[in-house]
Simulated assay, not measured.
Amino acid sequence: MTKSYKLLEAELEKMAFRDGACIIMAINPDDVEVSNWVRLKCQYGCPSYGKKLSCPPYSPTPEDTRKVLKEYSKAYLIGYSGSIFKGYGEEKFGEIFPKALKQIRKSILELEKHSFLSGYYKSFTYGFCGPCTLCKQCSAENGDLTCKLPKESRPSMEAAGMDVFKTVRNAGLELEVQNEVNQNDLRMYTLLLLE
């Protein structure tokens, strides 16, 4: 039997906050901004372009993403703040960031699985903030287009053509480009789709 959205939402909120999220907000999938220019930023600016199966050119195109979003009636924007990094002590940010991403990726996959087991069989979450870091070297770098961890790997919102800044602002939240790395002010988001 499928759980009610209300009950599932309360459970997802509890799980997300337990794992370091600072916000989980229901949004309409129509409010997710998908733009073709986002893919250009990956292609001309990210060193992972063509080197990760969760990144362009292998990730869903903006056109594909628009089609997928039309198949859902509910989405959850899940945000994390720099406070998630405090549990890692005095390590340098460059050493902390991959560890925190691993924790967050595990958490969002648990949210997807919990939604699935609650009767929302179309549940899907996007990866988190940048390229996949599950493997030291993605098989794509060797020309093998078979992911070693397909149950865990997901394209990030931006890899799928989503304008994260505009989507967050559409939800009534603030998100600005940061001129310097101040982990306390850092805001990061991902998206969970449900039907």
Results as ranks from 00 to 15, higher is better:
106 K>D: 09
85 F>M: 08
89 G>F: 05
22 C>V: 14
119 G>F: 10
95 E>V: 11
165 F>D: 12
84 I>M: 12
168 V>G: 03
137 Q>W: 11
151 K>E: 15
195 E>L: 00
195 E>W: 03
36 N>V: 06
114 H>G: 00
63 E>R: 11
92 K>Q: 12
13 E>F: 10
188 M>W: 02
83 S>C: 10
81 S>G: 05
128 F>R: 02
120 Y>C: 05
93 F>W: 03
93 F>K: 00
88 Y>N: 01
33 E>N: 13
117 L>N: 08
52 K>N: 08
182 N>Q: 09
52 K>T: 04
137 Q>N: 12
29 P>G: 05
113 K>Q: 15
139 S>V: 05
160 A>S: 15
80 Y>S: 08
106 K>A: 13
129 C>F: 00
135 C>I: 12
47 P>S: 09
66 R>Q: 09
185 D>A: 10
80 Y>P: 03
16 A>P: 01
192 L>S: 06
6 K>H: 05
180 E>K: 06
175 L>N: 09
160 A>N: 13
67 K>M: 01
68 V>Y: 03
51 K>I: 00
71 E>N: 14
7 L>D: 15
41 K>M: 01
111 L>A: 07
193 L>P: 04
136 K>W: 02
166 K>N: 14
115 S>Y: 05
18 R>C: 11
162 M>Y: 06
167 T>E: 04
148 K>T: 12
40 L>Q: 14
96 I>W: 03
35 S>H: 09
90 E>Q: 11
102 K>M: 12
61 T>Y: 06
193 L>M: 08
56 P>I: 06
47 P>G: 13
49 Y>P: 07
174 E>R: 08
131 P>T: 08
54 S>E: 15
156 S>E: 03
67 K>A: 08
112 E>G: 02
91 E>P: 02
95 E>C: 10
100 A>P: 14
83 S>V: 13
111 L>M: 12
59 S>E: 09
18 R>S: 09
73 S>W: 07
166 K>Y: 04
35 S>Q: 12
126 Y>T: 07
57 P>A: 02
72 Y>G: 07
97 F>K: 15
15 M>P: 00
74 K>L: 11
191 L>H: 08
42 C>Q: 06
24 I>P: 03
71 E>M: 13
14 K>Q: 10
67 K>P: 01
102 K>D: 13
150 P>E: 01
77 L>S: 11
53 L>D: 08
147 C>L: 04
177 V>A: 15
66 R>N: 06
190 T>F: 08
154 R>N: 04
161 G>D: 05
